[in-house]
Design a protein around this nucleic acid. Structure first.
Lengths: 171, 171
DNA sequence: GTCATGTATGTAATATCATAACATGTCAAG
DNA sequence: CTTGACATGTTATGATATTACATACATGAC
């Protein structure tokens, strides 16, 4: 369960965290928190939405909307793109998932509920994506915004480079 | 020539800078620097590529690849997508233009040659895009990367919010 | 309960963005 | 004047995303 399972072999993304860890455990824990948050906020975590989040968590990497759709369709949900996009958009709005623009993909948020300005580190060799909190990045961005009178509502920060494993192999 | 001309009326982007300024002047200056840089580095700023950069500068906002293509085709260049994408990719590689992922669009770099980690501020009301240097953001990102052993090669930082003009009107 | 209302889902059709593959043209070194 | 490298043109297709509309389900008013 731990380690580099499935890294970058099939789709848009690789594993979500670089370090080895208990995958089933972290997915279950995140799912539980997502449910608690939805209940608290009144957001309706319906079957499609819940299943979409589970799919992202189980894949444990960034998935394209059409990849998610395949899973959903195979399980009896609709098989047209809006089904996946709507569920994914909902999750992103609720802070339960993130959109990785560089990959045209989506990944489950690993720290739902915690106030965080996530930064994504994307390995150009294996497509693995790691999410890291980066309050300092948000502060720096807002400082720059203040200088030109811009009010920031959301930020996207994505860094492309090499993850530890690929850096070792490639260099 | 100065002011909010054409802001967000036709395409993917609005004006590139929020503040009023002499548009023809800044475009000309940037173009001159782009030529000098290309000459110095040996990069071949061919007619299509040069014209593509001019189109971005003249539009003074973020343009989609197909918008650029329309201009190019109207001037006798090829009218198929690869023509635009290749020219735009070249400009991005040379640091003469930037890709704005949130808008699926491209904008001329306003500070070519200067080492900079640009941050883009995108107004959600008028789609205007401003490019600002943000060395502090880059440093903060690399500090976070160091914590997980990731080596950063390129970063994308895009902030969505309201530009000064829209904030005034809307609020 | 049942009706009205808002929200969620399903489906069809299409719009938009991007690339692969290959042919042709240009230019400078040898 | 040929060769090799790079640039451009063109065809075709792939990948991503949205609009529009129909149907179903939940919730609260009565």
């Amino acid at each position: 369960m731990a380690g580099a399972e499935g890294r970058g072999t099939t789709g848009a993304g690789g594993v979500v965290a670089f370090a080895a860890h208990d995958h089933a455990h972290c997915a279950g824990e995140v799912m539980a928190r997502a449910e608690a948050l939805s209940a608290a906020s009144g957001a309706r975590l319906t079957p499609v939405r819940r299943r979409t989040l589970e799919i992202l968590l189980q894949a444990h990497r960034a998935l394209g909307a059409y990849e998610v759709l395949e899973h959903l369709a195979a399980e009896g949900f609709g098989n047209q793109p809006p089904v996946a996009y709507r569920a994914l958009d909902f999750l992103v709005e609720q802070g339960l998932a993130h959109r990785i623009r560089r990959l045209n993909a989506f990944a489950a948020c690993m720290h739902p509920g915690e106030a965080h300005s996530p930064v994504f580190f994307i390995c150009r060799a294996c497509n693995a994506v790691a999410e890291a909190p980066a309050e300092a990045v948000r502060r720096a961005t807002e400082a720059a915004a203040a200088g030109i009178g811009f009010s920031v509502e959301r930020t996207t920060v994505e860094a492309l480079g090499l993850c530890p494993a690929c850096a070792e192999v490639g260099a």
